[in-house]
Design a protein around this nucleic acid. Structure first.
Lengths: 117, 117
DNA sequence: TTGACGCATGCCGATATGGGCATATGATTG
DNA sequence: CAATCATATGCCCATATCGGCATGCGTCAA
């Protein structure tokens, strides 16, 4: 299975899975509790097949869990997978507090950082 | 320009831009300071054109800045765009601390949440 | 001016996406 | 069993991806 790489699959990664706005919307909505597919679709203004497909991706990366409830299938949040993303971005916290207003300062700062290596 | 949507462009969003592992590597490396393209490519084991392309994406979403330095072009980090991602994931913090060890507990919890609506 | 170097861009190929739509699959009820 | 409701899938299309490779373009040195 030698795959001639193109863009990584949405299911390859939590980062890829949440790159899609609608999937982020689903996750956000699920914070309020379990929801059956159709309800999700309605509340977010997407078609049922559309919702199902996004839920599939979310399920495959483990951000969502489902359980049967009679005729329905309830989807619930499992946010643990978001933690790595939060931590990764957190590693840049000290950088987004820097002032970039003046290019001068920016350049100075970088030069300095570079010298400290 | 009616675009029959496919997967969103990598430049449409910071979320999409950082969905690519190599781009995350670039950002991480840039925390140590500015770097010319070739150096980045070498240190991360990618081709020069490859690095340039990823840097282009990062530049377009504003995660990176560049400035000419003679023959070279130095790229530097501008992490401010990562903040929204950090905050978005942070909105799920209380959820990833929940215990999912026993499915029972999980189901109980969701049932309860649902009733509280 | 001519090279050489550093980087950006263009083109190609293989792949996967997300939307729309139809339909298959499952479970429930009468 | 048949009809119905809830979901999942399959297929098609247009698009953009990422990698590889060649090449264009700007800058600096001899």
């Amino acid at each position: 299975m030698i795959e001639v790489m193109a863009r990584a699959a949405t299911t390859s990664d939590v980062f890829n899975a949440i790159a899609e706005p609608q999937r982020r919307d689903i996750l956000a909505l699920l914070r309020a509790g379990e929801r059956p597919v159709t309800e999700l679709a309605q509340e977010l203004g997407m078609t049922q097949p559309g919702a199902s497909k996004h839920l599939r991706v979310l399920r495959e990366v483990g951000l969502v869990r489902d359980r049967k409830a009679g005729k329905q299938r309830l989807y619930g949040l499992d946010a643990r997978g978001l933690r790595p993303v939060h931590e990764w971005t957190g590693g840049f916290e000290r950088f987004w507090n820097e002032s970039f207003d003046r290019l001068d300062a920016y350049v100075q700062d970088l030069k300095q950082t570079r010298q400290e290596e």
